[in-house]
Design a protein around this nucleic acid. Structure first.
Length: 396
DNA sequence: CCTGCCGGGAA
DNA sequence: TTCCCGGCAGG
C-alpha cells in the first residue's frame, strides 16, 4: 500500500520566501526505512516528501491546504487542484518507483508476492500471512536489507517479476537461517530428517513424502515438519526422534512418556502446522511403544515354539499381546515391574475368548520360573510365579 | 507327587 | 496395591 498522505503538521509549509512555490510534505506509507526529500516539480512546486515505512495510516490523498494561503494568481483553482493531484500522483509514483526507493515498494511487486508469498511481504496490511511475521516486521533486519539489495539489482531495468522459485527459496532460506538458527525436523512417520533450512525441509517432504511437486502438496509440507531451535537440538538427546533409527533399545518405557513436549514448545510455526505433527508424533510414539517390546526379547531356552514373534504392527492389532520373556533376570524384572500389570489388564479385558471364569487352560509346555530357577532360588522368579499366579516371564 | 495358577484374603 | 497361600486341575 503506497499511501500518500499529508500530515497536517508538516505538509503545507509555505514560507514567505517561498511564496511562489508550494511546499508539500508528503508522507507515504511503504516499506523499509523512511525516505524523505524534496522534489521540485515542473510547475514550480517544490514537494517535500517523507516516506515512512512504519506508519500505518489510512489512505488519504487529500492535501489539506488552507484556503487562506496565497497562491499564485495566475493559477485557476482547477489548475491548482490538478497540480495537487498531479503532485500526488508523482509522489505516489516516486515513492513506489523501484529505482528511487526499492524498500518501500517491495510489497507492490506482484512478482514478489506470487513468488515468495508472505515470506517477503512484511507489511502487516498486505493480507498475506507470513511465517516470520512477528519477528521480522517491526525491525528491519540485516537480511532484509541484503535481500533488498539483491532485489533492487535486477529491478533497475524494471520490475523483475520473473524471479524463479528457487531464487526465492534461497532468499527465504537465507533469511530463515539468519533470523533463527533453528533446524527443521521432518515429522513424517519413520523419517527423522533434520535440516537446517525450511526450504530444504519443504523440498524434502514434497519430494520424498508427498511424492511430487504438485501445487497442493506445496502447501501440505508445512504439516509434516516442525521447527526446533538449535538449543533444543543440542539439549534434547532423549528426544524420540533419533531413537527411532537407533536400534539400541534397552527399555521401551523410557520413551513412552516423552511424547515430544519439548518439540511442541520449540515449534514456532503456525498453529496449523503444529497440530498435524503432534498427532503424527502421537501415533508414531504409540507404534514405538508397541514395537519395542519384541526387540528386547530373548528366546526362552526350553521352547522353540515361542520363537515365533509377530511383527509390531500385528502386536498392536492382536488383543492378546505376548509378553516378552528374557533370560536376563534384571532386565526382565525391571520390565515386569513396569509393564506386567498393564499388559495383563490389557490382555484380560481384550480377550473375548475368556468367557468362562473357571476356565483353566491346560498346562503349557513352557518351563516356568519354578522349573527354571527351582524353589531354592525363588527370589529369581517372576513376581507372578512368586505369587502363584500365571507366569509372566515365560507365558504359554 | 509335581507343577501351574485361580481365587481369595491379609497387610 | 502388594503379597501370600489354599486348593484345584493337569500331567
Amino acid at each position: 500500500m503506497a499511501a500518500v498522505r499529508s500530515s497536517p503538521g508538516l505538509d503545507v509549509v509555505q514560507t514567505g520566501s517561498e511564496r511562489q512555490d508550494s511546499l508539500i510534505n508528503v508522507q507515504s506509507c511503504g516499506q523499509g526505512e523512511g525516505v524523505s526529500g524534496q522534489k521540485r516539480l515542473n510547475t514550480g512546486q517544490r514537494i517535500e516528501w517523507l516516506v515512512d515505512a512504519n506508519t500505518q495510516q489510512t489512505n488519504r490523498h487529500t492535501f489539506p491546504r488552507s484556503s487562506g494561503v496565497d497562491l499564485p494568481t495566475f493559477r485557476s483553482p482547477e489548475s491548482v487542484e490538478m497540480d495537487e493531484i498531479m503532485a500526488a500522483m508523482v509522489l505516489t509514483s516516486l515513492s513506489c518507483s523501484p529505482v528511487v526507493q526499492s524498500p518501500p515498494q517491495r510489497d507492490l511487486l506482484p512478482g514478489d508476492m506470487e513468488c515468495c508469498g508472505g515470506e517477503l511481504s512484511d507489511s502487516g496490511s498486505s493480507g498475506y500471512w507470513s511465517w516470520d511475521h512477528g519477528s521480522v516486521s517491526p525491525a528491519p533486519s540485516p537480511s532484509v536489507t541484503e535481500m533488498d539489495r539483491r532485489l533492487s539489482q535486477p529491478t533497475d531495468e524494471g520490475l523483475h517479476m520473473e524471479l524463479d522459485q528457487t531464487a526465492c527459496e534461497e532468499l527465504e532460506a537465507r533469511r530463515c537461517k539468519s533470523l533463527s538458527r533453528g533446524a527443521y525436523r521432518c515429522l513424517w512417520p519413520g523419517c527423522e530428517k533434520v535440516l537446517t533450512s525450511r526450504v530444504g525441509m519443504k523440498r524434502h517432504i514434497r519430494i520424498l513424502h508427498l511424492g511430487g511437486g504438485s501445487e497442493q502438496s506445496h502447501r501440505e509440507e508445512d504439516f509434516y515438519y516442525t521447527e526446533v531451535s538449535s538449543e533444543d537440538e543440542e539439549t534434547a538427546p532423549p528426544s524420540p526422534a533419533p531413537s527411532f533409527s537407533s536400534g539400541a533399545w534397552t527399555s521401551c518405557s523410557s520413551t513412552q512418556s516423552q511424547t515430544t513436549p519439548g518439540c511442541q514448545d520449540a515449534v514456532q510455526s503456525s498453529p496449523l502446522s503444529q497440530s498435524a505433527p503432534s498427532s503424527v508424533w502421537q501415533i508414531h510414539t504409540e507404534h514405538l511403544y508397541q514395537a519395542c517390546a519384541p526387540i528386547q526379547v530373548t528366546v526362552s531356552p526350553g521352547s522353540p515354539t515361542l520363537c515365533s514373534w509377530t511383527l509390531p504392527g500385528d502386536v498392536q492389532q492382536k488383543p492378546q499381546m505376548a509378553a516378552p520373556r528374557s533370560r536376563s533376570v534384571s532386565v526382565g524384572e525391571q520390565w515386569l515391574q513396569r509393564n506386567s500389570a498393564p499388559t495383563r489388564s490389557q490382555t484380560m479385558s481384550a480377550s473375548p475368548s475368556r468367557g468362562h471364569c473357571s476356565f483353566r487352560k491346560g498346562r503349557g509346555e513352557a518351563k516356568k520360573c519354578r522349573k527354571v530357577y527351582g524353589v531354592e532360588r525363588r527370589d529369581q522368579w517372576c513376581t507372578a510365579c512368586r505369587w502363584k499366579k500365571a507366569c509372566q516371564r515365560f507365558p504359554d
